[in-house]
Computed example of a mutant assay.
Amino acid sequence: MLNILSILIGLVVLLFAVVGFVPLLGWLNWFIIPLGIVGAALGALSSSKSGRNLNILLIIICALRLSLGGGLL
């Protein structure tokens, strides 16, 4: 059950991450990364690791996007 919840959180993070890739909306990543951390924590508590891996991948992608934009753009 926790893995399904983690995957659902990951899909929400993915949806917001797509919006965060639009120029001048990079600040959205500041809200996406903590949500991804919550999803990764729930995925770590479950027996299956697919939700955890999805959220970790999304956290890394959003952090890279945030660093390329200088933390704001």
Rank of each mutant, 00 (worst) to 15 (best):
A44M: 13
A41G: 09
L68M: 15
F16Q: 04
L25E: 06
G39L: 02
L72F: 09
L73N: 11
A40F: 10
F31Y: 14
L68N: 13
S48A: 07
L66D: 11
G69H: 06
L25T: 04
N53I: 10
S67W: 15
W30F: 15
I56H: 07
I4C: 02
G39I: 01
V13P: 06
L24Q: 06
A17I: 04
I59E: 09
L2M: 08
S47F: 14
S46K: 06
L14V: 02
C62K: 12
V19F: 03
L73G: 15
I59C: 09
V38K: 02
L25R: 10
W30C: 12
L2P: 00
L64P: 15
N29S: 11
L45K: 13
L64D: 05
S6D: 00
I9E: 00
G26N: 05
G26V: 01
V13T: 09
V38M: 14
S50N: 10
R65W: 14
L15P: 02
N29I: 05
A40H: 06
I61K: 05
V13A: 08
R65A: 10
L57A: 14
L35E: 00
S6T: 00
S48D: 13
G70C: 13
G51K: 03
G20Y: 01
A63F: 15
L73T: 13
C62R: 04
A63T: 14
G71L: 14
L24A: 08
N53V: 12
I32K: 01
G69A: 13
G71P: 14
L68A: 12
G43W: 03
G43P: 05
S6K: 03
L57Q: 04
G51D: 04
V12P: 02
L35S: 04
S50C: 11
L42T: 03
I7C: 05
V13S: 01
L72D: 14
G71C: 15
G70R: 12
K49E: 13
I7K: 10
L28V: 09
P34K: 06
I7H: 01
L57C: 07
I9F: 01
G51N: 02
W30L: 15
S46M: 07
G43D: 02
G43C: 06
N55S: 00
L57Y: 03
N53T: 14
K49G: 09
W27E: 08
L54H: 05
A40C: 01
C62E: 12
V38W: 03
V12H: 04
V13I: 11
L57P: 00
